[in-house]
Design a protein around this nucleic acid. Structure first.
Lengths: 118, 118
DNA sequence: CCCGTACTACGATGCCTATCGTACGAGACG
DNA sequence: CGTCTCGTACGATAGGCATCGTAGTACGGG
């Protein structure tokens, strides 16, 4: 066990390795409005954000579920920091696997938000 | 009723208008392996292909279902031509709504197929 | 050590969906 | 007309999933 792992009480979270990330899973993860919103905010911020930072119109249970889907599909990276769980986009890995995909989706989401939201 | 509509026995199929196409629905449609495969073949061919051209490892009922999901999400255009039902990518509409998105997904799919398929 | 905050785990529920089989409709062709 | 092919419609089924509520765990601070 690494020092880092011991430092957060061994509460490491399972992430798919780079080679395990599947395009279909990524697209499915991004096809949910809640999750797409989360990803957009993460991309806009550029840094790590805690789960509680997001004010989604669902319960915390459901929020936990969505973050898990995003993590298990390889879209985000999650790590505990104290009681908080920090979330960051796996932009480097995604860009490596699927160049331009994330940016296209983000641009498409922004466009649609502009078009629909006013 | 137009002449064209009468010519094919009024078997016109409902398609979403450009403004009705939703990014989430498009991503969801593309997140299924069967449907992604269909879209890849359509993009590779560049022209219209009949449903029966595709040799999917599912029954015809299921194939019909997948084509309907693709059509109703706005990814493909379907039109009857005799007994055959021709399918074509709505590349113009998608590129207009979400520039670069389709190409990114297709490139990502090709990359993954290369990586996994050998 | 106790408490509050942050997040999880688990079970329930209702909806969506991928799949199939069978029966049917529409056009082409002899 | 009869028949063949192509694709649809409908019902069934099984699994997935978004959602909730409640109860519980982990960590930090007084």
């Amino acid at each position: 066990m690494t020092t880092a792992a011991r430092a957060n009480g061994s509460r490491d979270l399972p992430h798919p390795a780079l080679e395990e990330i599947r395009l279909e899973s990524v697209l499915h993860a991004l096809s949910d409005p809640m999750r797409l919103q989360v990803v957009r905010e993460l991309a806009a911020d550029g840094d790590e954000l805690s789960c509680s930072h997001f004010d989604l119109p669902v319960t915390k249970s459901t929020t936990t579920h969505h973050f898990r889907v995003l993590r298990e599909s390889g879209v985000i990276r999650q790590v505990y920091r104290g009681t908080a769980k920090m979330n960051g986009l796996r932009r480097d890995d995604l860009d490596d696997l699927f160049p331009g995909l994330l940016d296209s989706v983000l641009a498409a989401a922004a466009r649609q938000a502009d078009r629909l939201g006013g």
